Amino acid sequence: MINNFRNFDQIKTNELFITRHKWFFPYYELTDGQLVYGKLSYKSHWRKYAIIETAEGSWTIKHKGWFKCAMLLNKDDDQTIGTIEPQRWKRDTLLKLDNGFEATYLYKKLFTKALTLASAAQGDILQIIQKPFGIKTPFKIQIDASPQKVNLNIPLFTLIGVNLILLRQAQAAAAVSA
């Protein structure tokens, strides 16, 4: 596998974008307009198996089971390094990594289109904003680039958040069409 992604420690801006490529079986890239920092793709049309690639490596997100909401975050394909658990009766999603890192993807306001990744230890880490009518660039990312957050894997966390939004959109579309 050829790694064409730029290291995130070389970033020059606090604002990134997600670009969508292809219409059928799309994949999404995290970019600043010139350089690509990561990629989110799916193995099947049902989005039960996501593949995230960055300069640091590749990860997969798989559902624990057909009727389970929780997802496993795996390094490469088989080494589980954490879980992603949507909360019941809330729009929040808890991210727990085996190295002790814990954060929550949450919507801070009731009618907002901005998903924020917040940690008790580091505060707000990033914000994913859905752009209305953004077909080619559906998301804008704002990153808090303070020095203590440089060692975090921001491209991975961003693409996990985008995956959560896309899953929620697919579930909403399925509920409307049912």
Rank of each mutant, 00 (worst) to 15 (best):
A175C: 08
A170R: 15
Q169P: 15
T158P: 07
V150P: 01
L152S: 11
A145D: 10
I165Y: 05
G134M: 05
N153L: 01
V150R: 04
S146L: 07
A145N: 14
Q169Y: 10
L126A: 10
N151C: 01
Q169L: 14
V176I: 13
A173K: 14
L164T: 00
S177R: 10
L164P: 02
A174Q: 12
V162K: 00
T158I: 02
R168C: 09
A120C: 10
A118V: 06
A120H: 07
Q130K: 15
N151Q: 10
I141Y: 05
V150E: 06
L164K: 02
I125Q: 01
K149W: 00
D124W: 01
Q142E: 12
G123Q: 07
L166A: 06
N163V: 13
A174W: 04
Q122R: 01
R168D: 14
G134H: 03
A121K: 11
I128K: 00
A120P: 15
L126W: 01
L126V: 09
L117N: 03
G123P: 05
Q148S: 12
L156W: 05
G134D: 07
K149Q: 00
L117K: 02
L117Y: 01
A172V: 05
A175N: 11
A145Y: 02
L117I: 12
F133D: 09
A175H: 07
L164V: 12
V176T: 12
I129K: 13
I154C: 09
V176M: 08
A172N: 13
I143C: 11
K140Q: 12
L152R: 01
T137G: 08
L159W: 05
D124I: 04
P147N: 11
P155E: 07
I160L: 10
I141L: 14
A170H: 12
A172E: 15
K140P: 07
L164F: 01
I143A: 05
T116F: 03
S177V: 13
